[in-house]
Write a protein that binds this DNA or RNA. Structure first.
Lengths: 232, 232
DNA sequence: ATACGACTCGTACGGCGTACGATTAAATTG
DNA sequence: CAATTTAATCGTACGCCGTACGAGTCGTAT
């Protein structure tokens, strides 16, 4: 298992030239910067989704010309990388490995990670397809350290981490993409019910109508940890 | 949890007008049909990836004009839906629930599903973002039936299915996207090693360089099933 | 013959990412 | 102070995209 594409080097940091004429324009925008670009890209992604991020629209929101962005970023892909990494920043306590409750710590780490991604529903789908940025590596390091400190052997460590990664990624992508309007829900129910003779078990368990995402995530995670824990 | 978008109705099925002149053109293409379009779309996706599928290129491969496709499909999204569903067709034995080895059956179902997606690396990323087509519903029904027949209670069934879904989806998307050239691998190793002071545990376990994807998938799945199994 | 439905496709439009080079303002140098 | 260099902005234009629209071609039914 290996990582992809390299990172993103920032380029500029000097001063700029928003004309300091007396207040004629509606609002004198602050100067462009990588930070403003990334923050605005996240806003735009939150509001319009992955397909809604266009370089022209991003520039509009920043009060800049479209081509001005390219002084600060190399291309559109880099905007995605930076927005994704910014959204994955870990703001929790770093002293998590002192609590003694390693299982609670793992649950906390993974629920916090999932919550960060669900706050920005475009992020989960992006994560496995891009290079691993520093912030996701910090989270993985914290997870590794916690498991390792809990007595998981080096031989089992990678399998444990990848299993948890797979589970969180799959759960979060699925949740983020199945979050629909009520109309869609009604249509889905309609469609499934009409086909119930072909899918009797699914229909009976109302698999597609189950709305307790958080509970299902937690229960499944507990099962996985049950399987992982006895091995040390 | 609910499903998205509705399906895709086929439209045409009559005859057409490839001029039956004596063999002047290099090759007299067979007529357009939904089947040919979908099969060629899968070929193109396999060869060029998700971003490589363009309506014009698809039409070129079919020896047709770009706009001719729109007689058979409503738009490009429908091509993705149809290609995805076609790739998920289940060709295994339907009498799987007779073997008595429910756990072996579950492993077989999930490994077959994963293998189908890895044969078409663009498919896994697409699956959670589209409506559930008939072929993936067939697989979910088979999985549900097997678990239910193994004594999993209705109360636990949905959690079990979604946990397995999450794991398979996460594992397959990750695997499909981390499948890189040797150059990329070298670059990843380089990058990680240079940063090893920040990520000591990850670096020590060589997490990102582990290449045993199939083994890791199977071991993690075993752990998850260990956790799921005691509850009946 | 005529009409019609099934099917194909050329043209064109608006929107996209971005290459290129002109422009301007600030910083640096003499 | 003037001259030069550097950092940053942005207008224009190009090639490519999905696809709306409507005209054209054919086999068949009347």
């Amino acid at each position: 298992m290996a990582a992809k594409r390299s990172g993103a080097e920032s380029k500029g940091s000097g001063r700029r030239g928003a004309s300091p004429q007396s207040g004629q324009e509606p609002r004198s925008e602050p100067p462009l910067s990588l930070e403003r670009i990334v923050a605005t890209a996240v806003e735009l992604l939150d509001a319009e989704g992955v397909d809604g991020l266009k370089m022209r629209r991003l520039a509009d929101r920043l009060g800049a010309g479209a081509m001005s962005l390219y002084w600060h970023v190399g291309n559109k892909e880099e905007v995605f990388d930076l927005a994704l990494d910014s959204v994955l920043e870990y703001r929790g306590p770093p002293d998590i490995d002192e609590s003694g409750d390693w299982r609670g710590d793992v649950v906390h780490i993974l629920e916090d990670w999932r919550a960060s991604m669900l706050r920005h529903p475009w992020s989960a789908s992006l994560l496995p397809r891009r290079a691993l940025g520093p912030n996701i590596l910090i989270r993985l390091e914290l997870l590794s350290k916690t498991l390792s400190g809990a007595g998981v052997t080096d031989a089992d460590l990678n399998v444990a981490i990848w299993s948890l990664w797979n589970y969180v990624i799959g759960a979060t992508i699925t949740r983020a993409n199945f979050d629909l309007s009520d109309d869609d829900r009604a249509a889905a129910q309609q469609r499934l019910t009409g086909l119930s003779e072909h899918y009797p078990t699914i229909e009976r368990s109302r698999l597609l109508l189950d709305n307790d995402w958080d509970g299902a995530f937690r229960k499944g995670l507990d099962f996985l940890l049950d399987g992982l824990a006895p091995r040390q």
